[in-house]
Design a protein around this nucleic acid. Structure first.
Lengths: 361, 361
DNA sequence: CTGAAAGCGCTTACAG
DNA sequence: CTGAAAGCGCTTACAG
């Protein structure tokens, strides 16, 4: 620091010290000793919110020492003291499902900006495994929990709610529980899709429904029936077949049942892109084409569905926004746990592509 | 516990206690007090590895108390004492890129089985942001770090390596650094793709290369040239054009340059599925078809590329296996930090679909 | 403005 | 087999 040359060589030496210090991280005590102050003083000097209490010369000495030793506060030790880990747990049913990627990205970006890290738990569909992994998150004393796994009737969510741990549901809601949630407007989305098909001239429209124990499946189905009856169109028990899960295979199985109907529909509104793709596969296997023989709509606007054959008309949900909003709600929840829980609904958009067209006849 | 009825009502009451305890979690001390033992005894009784030291009656009392109070060990407090957080950090450049989903899933599943939780940091491509978020992970005292962000020349990796923090690279390697890594065999994969094109009768084959500062981009390009020269085919400076990043847009830009060549190639081997899709888009925009006017191959076998038009011939990397292997390597590294670093290469497969065919002439 | 002390919840030698 | 004590790294009233 005395001359340029000394400054340069000192920089190199600081680098070395930083590297070495990582092997056995510097503690507040070692920084305080190096600066010749008490560790409580060092603690204050290194806290942006409290450094104004410190004299300029002491501040300088502590900062230099911290830099030279490569000090990094142990967030977990601090957490023990402050009772806040700044850790958030996110439970997703299947991290490989492309629907969740933008939600995870939006959520963790917003949380990171607020100084929180996100532990993503890929908890699967098995309830016991879900509970075990969620309990792990709690054992890590996360400051809050975001669940993308909720069922309509969900005892686990009810239990978590009792525990007064800040909790937010994302993408799916639970019925009859006062818990903050951020979802897409599933009813509206499906109504948009069906209205589009009706506008094209379709009247025999079937619904390839999602699992009915999940809010997305249930509400999209409600949207389907609402749109049909509002247009004065026929619906009966065979108009909708529910898939057992949101997967291409699930879509194939359900689509086969729909195709077996005595009067084949001219259009199919699926509750999800993967289901729609399953339906397209079945059509192709049966020697039928889309949109020629049957128009098909999806839901979610997953990556690449614009590139499939035919390009899928679908409902775009704003995953990133949903994730960010969930993060905001959770932060709010952490700040004031007593406040009334709010539920936010993000509006989806209809994206028209090649898989829908007027009916042939 | 004295009568069935008492047992029943006690169950309900335990439930209540469990719920209440979560709001202000039971501590080891409260469990010990309830069981009438010292907290060190309770600690041992609750540790599977040490409970054999405890007398059966005391063990029973502690377990009952723990259950009734809904006790869950504070993993972070334990971490402070044991110097092991059982937390692993994973840095990915873009969590929304579908390539990473199976890797993340495989990694976190294997780690979860070993009692570790994974913090996924979506660090982006900006080096400063990457450093900041990686430093955050270190400040959380993760037991190890997995990086999916390595560049060929990577000062950050070198620095981390010095820090003697268990470190594993996944998907991409850094040049000249003795660091454990798990990747797909990128050279082999591209050779497979090119050999397939040659077998179909192509000889004017171009390479839509990935970013050359990333090992996947470099090695796939090397594989391309190796396969071409091995077959005695012409390559020159215009045979390969590198995209600036792995994206559809990047693929479009690079594909346009390739199409501008004086003699148009009959086949295009892309370094990545997204690049291949970009190329397909450009072909379509130019009024050309695939595979008719040009065969195209991708790399990765992302979800849905089997459904696009034309279905993409590609190289399948085993993402889940790569993730699991990376987890295994990291666990090994944590257990014995001194051992020589090993690099594992997972073999990819050629998946032939509709985007490749013999050349027209 | 700075220091001394208590304590967050746990584990682990050390005694007995 | 169980207890008493120290200490992991930090923050925060409480003094001065």
């Amino acid at each position: 620091m005395t001359t340029d040359r000394a400054g340069t060589s000192c920089h190199a030496c600081n680098q070395l010290q930083m590297d070495m210090s990582l092997s056995s991280p510097a503690t507040l005590k070692s920084v305080a000793d190096a600066a010749g102050v008490h560790l409580s003083t060092a603690s204050r000097a290194l806290d942006p919110a409290r450094r104004h209490l410190i004299g300029p010369d002491v501040l300088q000495r502590v900062e230099t020492a911290a830099r030279e030793l490569g000090y990094r506060r142990d967030m977990m030790a601090a957490a023990l003291r402050t009772r806040r880990t700044r850790l958030v747990g996110l439970a997703v049913p299947d991290i490989a499902n492309p629907v969740f990627a933008p939600i995870i990205a939006g959520l963790s970006a917003h949380l990171a900006d607020a100084g929180y890290s996100t532990i993503v738990a890929d908890v699967g569909a098995d309830r016991a495994r879900q509970k075990r992994l969620t309990d792990d998150l709690i054992a890590r004393r996360v400051d809050g929990l975001v669940l993308a796994t909720a069922l309509l009737e969900d005892g686990a969510v009810a239990a978590l709610l009792q525990a007064s741990l800040p909790l937010v549901l994302v993408n799916r809601v639970a019925a009859g529980l006062a818990v903050p949630a951020v979802t897409s407007d599933d009813r509206l989305g499906m109504r948009l899709a069906v209205a589009h098909l009706i506008a094209l001239g379709h009247s025999r429209i079937a619904h390839l429904a999602g699992p009915q124990q999940i809010s997305t499946g249930r509400q999209r189905q409600e949207g389907f029936f609402a749109a049909m009856t509002a247009a004065g169109l026929d619906v009966d028990a065979t108009s909708a077949v529910a898939a057992t899960d949101y997967s291409v295979q699930g879509g194939e199985a359900a689509a086969r049942k729909l195709l077996a109907a005595h009067v084949r529909p001219t259009a199919l509104a699926a509750a999800n892109d993967l289901l729609a793709i399953g339906a397209l596969r079945v059509l192709r296997a049966e020697g039928l084409t889309s949109p020629g023989d049957m128009s098909v709509t999806g839901f979610n606007d997953m990556p690449l569905v614009d590139m499939i054959n035919p390009p899928l008309t679908t409902i775009r949900i704003r995953g990133n926004e949903i994730g960010r909003e969930a993060a905001a709600l959770l932060l709010q929840r952490i700040a004031s746990p007593g406040a009334a829980p709010v539920q936010r609904v993000i509006l989806p958009d209809l994206i028209v592509r090649g898989s829908t067209a007027p009916p042939r006849d």
